[in-house]
Design a protein around this nucleic acid. Sequence first.
DNA 1: TTGAAAGCGCTAACAG
DNA 2: CTGTTAGCGCTTTCAA
Lengths: 220, 220
Amino acid sequence: MTAKTIKDIAKAANVSYSTVSRAVNNRPGVREATRLRVMEAAEALDYRPNGPARSLVNRKTHTIGLIIPDITNPFFPELASAIEERAQASDYSLMLCNTGWDEHKERSFITLLTERRVDGLLIAPSAHTAEELDRELLRLSLPVVYVSHAPAGTTRPYVVMDDVLGGMMAAEHLLQQGVGSIGFIGATDESVSIAGRLAGFRRACERYACSPDQQVVVLE
Amino acid sequence: MTAKTIKDIAKAANVSYSTVSRAVNNRPGVREATRLRVMEAAEALDYRPNGPARSLVNRKTHTIGLIIPDITNPFFPELASAIEERAQASDYSLMLCNTGWDEHKERSFITLLTERRVDGLLIAPSAHTAEELDRELLRLSLPVVYVSHAPAGTTRPYVVMDDVLGGMMAAEHLLQQGVGSIGFIGATDESVSIAGRLAGFRRACERYACSPDQQVVVLE
DNA sequence: TTGAAAGCGCTAACAG
DNA sequence: CTGTTAGCGCTTTCAA
């Protein structure tokens, strides 16, 4: 049994198919009785509007792409989950793309998503230096928002942590309590996040006149 | 600048647009010189095929839906990641839907995905008793595979853990070493997985004649 | 090897 | 209020 179309239910409800379109989309200008008849027929035939066809004419997919570098890093599922929730509330769905820190994959996902005609793109760039990516993205005339990390000097909107501030606040919190010495543990200084937090940490130390020998920094 | 269509590049390459279609899809029956000319024009105009339009005529979206109950549970990202990788290898992308254990959301995602005309559905059912869901899904004439957990008595294909076997193997491993007593720690016995593992654990205990007082079972 | 034309399922004028 | 018609961008016969 092939999927029912608007025409099938038009026939069943004895109306033109534009009327069906109006009815199922809750547009004005349909007599209540007619609308009811149409909806019943739709229900009976188990009609499901064809998304791609709609997208084609509406020029809207109600889909946004989310590109993340590493879904197995718990930060990103958390992020994805929150985004998904907001998206759903606005009747949008998410096309989730996981690059595994592979910049090549990242690019091909961007191509993929533009061909899929997503209405917008959320991207957590995998490269620390994503300036070139940013430039390419500009040509796309596609709404883009960076999350988690933004290319230096981008003119696009972004939503990121203020790592420096975070490191500073954490350090200040301890220093305010008058601790004798203070430590910083970071997984790797190749991470921009950690580098930022460390910078904040140092700034706090300066501010609180915490001498270098009172600072223990451990980076793997 | 609105997106280029097949017609724009037809004009630029001085061919009919059906020829462009053939060229960009690498179909036979296009002279090499023509194909080249077309591809150049496409490149120059930065042509991107319109996915929805293609899907409409091809009746194929190259997308599969993945419905999971809880993306913040590390098991599911891991699963999603693996699935995504395989999907991508077959030129498929994933529409990821996170239900948050909400059966209502689960259902609406199914509706959503069928309207989006996904080519198939992977679903990790959130309810332990998903028989009704299974029945509804049957009417959909959409390829469905269950993952992680399958409704009892489903006729659909599924890929799940053998929890009983797992619990049994773990217990046997310890019992074989002749331990005096053996423990089982599970977060909650409402989890089918944990219940299954516990069953396996008990079976192993029987088999190894491990008396009840040598078994310590902790369930929160 | 190429082009013309029909049609995928739907929305949106435009008429009645 | 309802129907007719013209596309959306693309693939695919069918002719030339």
